[in-house]
Design a protein around this nucleic acid. Structure first.
Lengths: 343, 343
DNA sequence: GTCATATTGAGGTGCGCACCTCAATGCAAG
DNA sequence: CTTGCATTGAGGTGCGCACCTCAATATGAC
């Protein structure tokens, strides 16, 4: 039989009450007693029964995902994954919700974060662009005891918060390697398109991409980043112009998760030229384009995994446990038509 | 407050005892009562508290991984992942163990499986080559109430068991696409090497690989599969001979997870020719070779995920719950030097 | 020594459920 | 009507722990 707290008390030569104080880090415990308990735990291999703990505490966890309001397909997917997790975790008495808020104004985001009632929320996973105001707001949340996860976004990493997402430099490098190898020996230019280059993740992906192209594919040249600002007309204009001025364009790399606008513009303007196309994130659009062989490869991070990972981390932190690093690393996936695994 | 079984009894107009009988599928319940309970569950949104259930049942789960005894690096990795899971699940009162048994003789495997005491084990995840004897033994295990998972292996899928692993045809196709695109326009031959072509997964990968090469890369020709039988000398011989007879070989595809023997033979014999190399499974060897740029791409299925997935499935089945399909699909990963994410 | 404070012990309650027993009801066949 | 069986109800116990109270002891300062 597995040892219980009672066995532990006996082994430590202390009363259940004292053992309880040690286990739950309550005050009025002498260092001597704490040590005796720690030793006894080692000696008899005591492990708290998580079910009993959960039952006795009878606590409900409250976690919130804070994501941009703009409705691109990747975000839609993300939201639906959060909903899935919400359902799955109802049994475990943990409330999961997603708050979609406009991200254009950092002050607004910061205000939203500051207004979070830290009594009503145990953890928040925040997907927001880098900005000092947001960083400050996150710091204050941490100080108020809320477990914060920097979620899939190009914020500078805080050391008082966990990060869930891929290394965007490596993701860009992966895109560069795939693009370079797929293009083959043919020299030419690579068009790089982003929704905006203000986002830190776009910058990092671009740096990673260029590092590989420059080092390993000297016959290729990646053009300056085009920005669409999510505006179809503008996208059509700048992309059309770039393709016109660079008839030796052999590939397109879309940095942002929203690939529909830029790629539609590309296909409208390309005039039958065969282009190697690499984009980011699996969406209904990119999935279909992979199947139709209009995109060659997609570099992705699984939103379902990201959501579950963020939740596991927030849960662990709430319980003062260390999350299992090996399980929580989000991988940089390379998706081709062949390994899409649509069911 | 979340409704308890007591609330449910009240809502159903029945006693706690009857509700308990319904919830735990005990005998002596009229269909009428069962229906009343089901309705009440819907109406008040009752969910059993898993912590309370676990505590009251106070059951320990016993799951066993049955894997080949031969110690290639992928298996070592797998075993160590099982050990990791064992540690992580000690808290949840579930025992996890790995049994390594020789797989060369199907009768022996079948005998081992038949000898499993179904009172002492709740679930087994079996990684064994396809054979009628093994299939029968698995069927009998299922009939005796053991939850069976077909694990990472090329067995024909049983419908009374779950499968954890990738679609090997798709994995082969992915390898084919990567190889074809990485080779580029240069025509030539592709050498295909396996430890043995007796294994169903090797056959499926080969079929997937060829389907892509034949359809999309007509300038490439994949050679008949070479078999090493895990014998270095034999590998050196057949590989050297093949390379000698096919000076226009441009790529090597290693079907098996054990890539060290065949690739060492290739590198010994290749004589400076630049070859595109695609292999399966992440191992210390393949990882290092990716970093050294001696392998171009690795098609992998994460053993850690596979282990955790198998455990979640066996756990769900033991609790008469349906596993969440969306979370349990093992992905076909494409690993390059750039997205290895060594920490 | 006395007092104040820190530390420990004993014991109880309840979390939500599974599992058990025993009595009480219903219902049908005879 | 009685007998037999299926169904239901009432109630208790225990799973392992958190959290609480109150008393008992230890430790220190003075």
């Amino acid at each position: 039989m597995r040892p219980t707290a009672k066995d532990l008390a006996e082994a430590a030569g202390l009363s259940l009450a004292t053992v309880d104080r040690v286990l739950n880090e309550r005050p009025n415990v002498s260092p001597k007693a704490a040590k005796k308990v720690a030793e006894a735990i080692e000696r008899i291999g005591f492990i708290r029964n998580p079910a009993a703990v959960a039952l006795a505490r009878n606590k409900t966890y409250r976690f919130r995902f804070v994501v941009p309001a703009s409705g691109d397909q990747y975000l839609d997917e993300l939201i639906s994954r959060v909903g899935e997790a919400k359902e799955a975790l109802r049994a475990e008495s943990t409330d999961v919700e997603a708050a979609q808020i406009p991200m254009s104004d950092p002050h607004h985001v910061a205000k939203y974060l500051s207004a979070i009632d830290c009594e009503a929320v145990d953890g928040v996973a925040v997907m927001a662009p880098e900005s000092p105001q947001v960083r400050d707001a996150l710091m204050r949340l941490v100080e108020r005891g809320v477990k914060v996860v920097q979620f899939l976004s190009g914020q500078e990493r805080m050391q008082s918060a966990d990060y869930v997402g891929v290394d965007n430099f490596a993701a860009g490098a992966t895109a560069g390697k795939i693009a370079g190898r797929f293009i083959g020996a043919r020299p030419g230019k690579i068009m790089v398109v982003a929704e905006t280059m203000m986002a830190l993740d776009s910058i990092q992906r671009r740096l990673g991409f260029d590092s590989i192209i420059n080092a390993q594919f000297p016959h290729l040249q990646s053009l300056p980043s085009l920005e669409t600002y999510a505006d179809e007309k503008r996208a059509g204009l700048v992309i059309g112009r770039t393709l016109h001025h660079n008839p030796d364009t052999v590939a397109v790399y879309v940095l942002s998760s929203e690939a529909r606008v830029p790629l539609t513009a590309v296909w409208n303007a390309q005039g039958g030229r065969p282009l190697t196309v690499v984009a980011h994130e699996r969406t209904p659009f990119s999935e279909q384009a992979l199947i139709d062989e209009r995109i060659d490869a997609v570099i992705a991070q699984d939103p379902g995994h990201a959501v579950r990972s963020a939740l596991r981390i927030m849960r662990a932190r709430s319980d003062h446990r260390e999350p299992l690093a090996s399980q929580e690393r989000i991988r940089i996936e390379v998706l081709l038509k062949e390994n899409l695994q649509v069911e």
